[in-house]
Write a protein that binds this DNA or RNA. Structure first.
Lengths: 204, 204
DNA sequence: AATAAAACCGACCAAGTGGTCGGTTGAAAA
DNA sequence: TTTTCAACCGACCACTTGGTCGGTTTTATT
C-alpha cells in the first residue's frame, strides 16, 4: 500500500514534468533524457515504470489531459441553464488561465492533435475522443437551450459547436506568438457577437 | 543561363517535395534523407544547393508558402466591393481545395507556426509575418466596407479579422482528423451566420 | 539482522541524425 | 579535343535517439 503510493508519486512526477516539456518542445522533439534530466532520474527508473515513450504519453493523456479537459471545459457548462452565458463564462475562464501562461488543456489538446496526426494513430484516437466528448457536451447544452427558449430554433447545434471549438483552438494557436491579452479580448468579444446572433428573440 | 535554369529546377523540385513531406510528417520528424530518398538525390546535392536544413525551410517559405498564401487567401479578397461576400467566397474556395487533399496553405501556415513556436525564432518570425499580412488585408477590407456601407459602424475590424483567421485555422486543424466534408460545410454556414450579424442594416 | 522485492542507476547498443568532403560526371566553352 | 566547373555522389563523422540489462540501493517484512 505504502509502496504503491511511492510508485504513484514517482509516476505522477514524471507525467507532470513530461507533459510540461512535451508541450513546450513537442513530443518528437523531446527526448526521454530531457525529461529525466529535469527530474534527476535515470533511464532505468523511466523504463521501470513505463514500457515505452509512447506508452508514457498515453498515460499522460489518461491521467492529466482527460481530467483537465473535463474539469476546465466540460463540467463548467454541463447542465447550465443559459447556454450562451455558460459558454462565455467558460471561455473567459479558459482564456484567462491561458494568458497567465498556465497550461491550457484545450490548446494542449489541439497542439498534440496536430503533432500526432498521421504519425501515431493510437494517440491520435485518444486525443480525438476527448475532443469529441467536448463537442457532444456543447451540442447537448445547445439542444437543451432550444427547448428552454434560449437558442433560436433554426440553429444548427453541431455546426455551432464545431465553430466554437475551431475558433477557440485557432485563437489559442495565435496566442502562442505573443500579444495574447489583445487576442484574448478580441476573441471573447467576437464570440459574444456571434452567440448573440443565435439567441431566441425574447418575447417581452 | 541554361545552367541557372537547371539549378533552379532542381532546387524547386527539392522545395516542393520537401514541403510535402515536412507537412505530412512534421519538420523535426523528417530527415533530410527522407526527402532525398523520395527525389533519388544525394546528400551532396542537397548541401550543394542549401546551407542547412533550416536554410532549406526558409527558402520553402519564401518560394512556396508566401506566394501561395498570397494567391489563395490575400489577392482574392483585395479591393473587392462587398467584404462579406468576398470573404465567404475566398473561404469556400480554400475549404474546397482543402477537402480535396491538396495543400491548403492557410493551414500549412498554422501547422508550422505551431511546430516552430519556441523552437526556431527566425522561422517563427517569417511565418508570423505572413499571417500578419493576411490579417492586415482583412482589416483593410472591412474598414473600406464600413465607408461603403456594407459593414456596421460598431464592428471591431481587428477583432473580426482575428476571429475569422482563428476559426479558419481551427477548423482546418479538426479537418485533418477526417470528416472534412461535414466540418467544411458547418464552418462555412457558421461563418455566414456570423458575418451576417456584422452587416450594416440596409435602408430600404 | 536477514531477506526479498521494489525502485532506481547508468553504461551500453543499434539505428538514426545533420552535416562534411574528396571524388566523379557530363555538358558547355576554349 | 581538351579544359573547366557546376551539379551531383556517397562514404564518413560526431552526436543523439529510444530502449536494454546487469547490477546497486531503499524499503517494508519477518
Amino acid at each position: 500500500m505504502d509502496k504503491n503510493l511511492k510508485r504513484m508519486a514517482t509516476m505522477h512526477r514524471m507525467q507532470v514534468t513530461g507533459l510540461e516539456i512535451f508541450y513546450k518542445k513537442g513530443y518528437y522533439n523531446t527526448s526521454v533524457d530531457d525529461i529525466l534530466k529535469e527530474l534527476s532520474l535515470s533511464k532505468g527508473a523511466f523504463y521501470y515504470h513505463f514500457q515505452s515513450k509512447d506508452d508514457f504519453f498515453v498515460s499522460i493523456i489518461q491521467n492529466l489531459i482527460v481530467r483537465k479537459v473535463y474539469s476546465l471545459l466540460i463540467e463548467p457548462i454541463e447542465g447550465k441553464e443559459d447556454p450562451f452565458r455558460a459558454i462565455e463564462a467558460c471561455f473567459e475562464n479558459a482564456m484567462s488561465t491561458a494568458e497567465h501562461n498556465e497550461l491550457d488543456y484545450g490548446f494542449v489538446l489541439s497542439n498534440f492533435m496536430t503533432e500526432f496526426n498521421g504519425r501515431n494513430e493510437l494517440i491520435s484516437k485518444y486525443l480525438r475522443d476527448i475532443y469529441k466528448v467536448w463537442e457532444v457536451n456543447i451540442v447537448t447544452l445547445l439542444q437543451k437551450g432550444k427547448t428552454d427558449g434560449y437558442v433560436a430554433r433554426h440553429v444548427d447545434s453541431e455546426g455551432v459547436a464545431t465553430f466554437l471549438i475551431s475558433s477557440y483552438m485557432g485563437v489559442r494557436m495565435l496566442m502562442v506568438e505573443g500579444n495574447s491579452k489583445m487576442l484574448s479580448y478580441q476573441f471573447l468579444q467576437q464570440v459574444k457577437q456571434y452567440l448573440k446572433s443565435l439567441e431566441q428573440p425574447q418575447l417581452a
